[in-house]
Amino acid sequence: MSQLQVKDLQVQFGGLRAVDGMNFDVEKGEIMCLLGPNGAGKSTTLDLICGKTQPTGGSILFQGTEISRMLEFKRARLGIGRKFQVPSVYKDLTVVENLSVARSARPSVLHSLTSRAVRRSARVKEILDIVGLVNKQDEAAGNLSHGETQWLEIAMLIAQDSRLILMDEPTAGMTIQETDRTAKIFRKLSANHTLIVVEHDMSFVRTVADRIIVMNQGKKLAEGSIQEIEANEAVKTAYLGH
């Protein structure tokens, strides 16, 4: 069974159907990229899966559980993580504190009351090594450079260890080198995690995507490998307007 099954998903904002009857499955360990012109409903689809937006119809099954009506923190507990378009680290907290918040395998109040704010475990050290922030671990996240902030956010996603990670434009504002590095991290992440990525950078998509879904006006326009998508006439029309 697929890890994530989306069936007839739709959401309506006033008169606008932002997502209109989406159907797709995502397999475990897959990197699925969502493409489409502005306003196609890509981010909204991620919002529906993580619980930021409530659907007006359809269903979302995660590992066989119906989640489309669940509160967002319960979905997170099931193993759905989300990276937003705007970098969202906690600027007042230090780097290790950010990671400690992200390590949320046991999010109950009771567990939090009986554990220390920051535990510098071997795992935390390992994650800091991966993203190269060891020397900055006690720095407030607000003092990091833009690039470092992006790495901290990726570190937080690794620390959170969600089975399904939803990424909204992870390479926005990155240099070419940083984008390459991110692509490599994603390939490594997909060994244990499933990823759904909204991205505009086609070279990035070409490197990471196992499968691509192109959306247009809230509907699925095309689905397939990068070669299939690039050859698809309907996709060309949607993008170029011929």
Partner: peptide, 20 residues
């Protein structure tokens, strides 16, 4: 405690904290 840390996280961004 971690409780206090999570509260400080909530002070800064309650929305983000929910997604953890």
């Amino acid at each position: 405690s971690k409780f206090g840390l999570v509260l400080r996280a909530i002070r800064e961004d309650p929305e983000r904290t929910r997604y953890f």
